[in-house]
Design a protein around this nucleic acid. Structure first.
Lengths: 341, 341
DNA sequence: TTGTAAGCGTTATCAT
DNA sequence: ATGATAACGCTTACAA
């Protein structure tokens, strides 16, 4: 008969009930391989444990094993669907492997403070977005197992998508549709992924003998608002100067641009083709649906967590130079062949 | 000179350096009020601690204090913007109060398994969505400090929005626009919030002498897909049977319905007025923008966390019967006066 | 194979 | 005011 009182059941309780010593209980219940314990004892212990509803105290275990079986995750903003996906993927892996995921949203407190809190909890590793890591004072991550989100190289290992290809795919798609006058919108911040998306886009244009004028390179935050403002600026250009196709650093910006066009009566894709990047769920909900480059956000989160959880890769030893995750162009309704004007 | 080696600094190290005993260090560094320690000693300890870069081990502290300073958060799906908001609000409060937030996504593993994992980590409380709590076997939450998301009454305290008013506001808005033929779409699941939104809507219609025919009550999951399917069913009705206004259990459904109308060429709001509920960011990105009832998701998460963090309310003692959080109608472009047909 | 003893890094209860 | 000493619940040698 299962007893389920509030008082926590410890290995001592189980030991007493099974008529063995406390460490024997520990041996049976926790240690996997070299637990050489008599079959009879083992059974009695296990039965006693289940009868009492024993549940190991992971704090105590962590204290002695010097491992907390928990991961920190620092994201710029949980409301950004891209990072919600990353979190979802990381949570899945962590949970499957018996790790807790300690969530930190930079919108609330600065990442430095989060890092300190995570240290105190003896986390086994931390997943952090590249922008936050870059903004941290030197040494803030010393002694921590770190995996960066969507940044392949740098001081720490990272899990990344093939951002340069993303930009190239967008450019090639638009070039194939006959466009010749392009704009790009994205943040100026030194975030690897955005930089590479931009670079891939520009390189592909160059390869086609085209360039990107300064007035058609709009700098702004990679948010809905940033997209709206950048789009407004583009729409304010005189007709001949205006681009016929725009690539946005991410879908949030693209959706902002999309909305701005709707507001101002600019027809997408008739007047303007729009390409985003990430393929968040929202991209399919607007009309016309957003053409975008799909990035496996959930998989990025999952792999990041796996790097920190897998005993073969922790500690930076034998960290496989993580190959980039492939991206894929998803053609929807926001792009169309260029019309003669 | 700050020393920042990898070896963790303990109270023993600090004690040695400050020339005091280890418990004295603890007294100075942790205990707040009744720490009666000489000013000189205190200063030496603090200086030694900063010099060594001491950081308390929260696992050890938790073990003896029998408190982990951590909260569990169980959500059905982080990608649902409503719950991303809840998480964001909860994280903010938790972080501010020195608590960690352990994130659990039910999409991954079942909530029972998550509960068990959280128990092992000695969490001080758990925030869980009402649907998950309802699906749990009896006793699964015994001995835990629980706060339900968006469910005011029941076995555990909850933080909720005024869901019945939400439904009423939607109905009154549509009635005021002259609509007389209504539909509702929402899940059949026994989730309090959705039930109350529906009830408030139906009651307000009744008060106006109107009812809701069975064919105009569409059951489906509160997701984008659910909204699309329900909308398709409504659009399949013969013209006279078709509603002129639809209230959706949440914005995800409403956006699905919105999209479905766009796909099928049903004009919103000319042919059909659409009202959602929650006011997620996405609601402003579609065209026409979605009229909806704004629900303070972030505040719900924040209050839930505060209930578990505030020493005055933990343990179920003196839990203030949390008054409902107010909701607000936000009129946008998806609703319009009923046209003569 | 199993029990004894020690220790993980704290906090808490005493003496002093 | 401060220092021994003993937990907290567990893992890990090391003995027996």
């Amino acid at each position: 008969m299962a007893k389920r009182s509030n008082a926590k059941v410890t290995t001592h309780d189980v030991a007493k009930r099974a008529g063995v010593s406390q460490p024997t209980v520990s041996l049976v219940l926790s240690r996997n391989p070299k637990a050489r314990v008599a079959e009879g004892t083992r059974e009695r212990v296990i039965q006693a444990a289940t009868e009492l509803g024993y549940r190991p105290n992971l704090l105590a275990r962590g204290l002695v094993r010097r491992k907390s079986f928990s991961l920190g995750l620092i994201v710029p903003d949980l409301k950004d669907p891209f990072f919600a996906d990353v979190a979802s993927g990381a949570e899945r892996v962590a949970s499957d492997e018996g790790f807790a995921l300690l969530l930190c949203d930079r919108r609330g407190n600065g990442s430095l403070r989060h890092i300190e809190a995570l240290r105190g909890r003896q986390i086994d590793g931390v997943i952090i977005d590249a922008a936050a890591a870059a903004a941290l004072p030197a040494g803030a991550l010393d002694g921590l197992d770190v995996v960066l989100i969507d940044q392949p190289d740098g001081a720490w290992p990272g899990v990344a998508s093939d951002a340069e290809s993303a930009g190239r795919l967008a450019a090639e798609h638009l070039l194939g549709l006959g466009h010749r006058r392009f704009a790009f919108m994205g943040p100026a911040a030194d975030v690897h992924t955005f930089r590479m998306r931009e670079r891939g886009f520009v390189k592909a244009l160059r390869a086609a003998g085209l360039g990107l004028e300064a007035s058609l390179l709009r700098r702004g935050p990679a948010t809905v608002t940033g997209g709206m403002e950048s789009m407004r600026a583009l729409n304010a250009l005189s007709a001949p100067e205006r681009p016929t196709a725009v690539f946005c650093a991410n879908d949030l910006m693209a959706l902002g641009a999309h909305k701005q066009c709707a507001t101002q009566g600019v027809r997408v894709p008739a007047d303007l083709s729009l390409v985003g990047c990430d393929d968040i769920e929202m991209a399919r909900l607007v009309t016309p649906e957003l053409t975008t480059v799909s990035v496996p956000a959930r998989e990025i989160g999952a792999r990041a967590a796996r790097l920190l959880v897998d005993p073969r890769t922790v500690g930076g030893v034998a960290t496989p130079r993580s190959r980039m995750l492939p991206v894929k162009l998803v053609v929807r309704g926001s792009t169309a062949p260029q019309q003669a004007r």
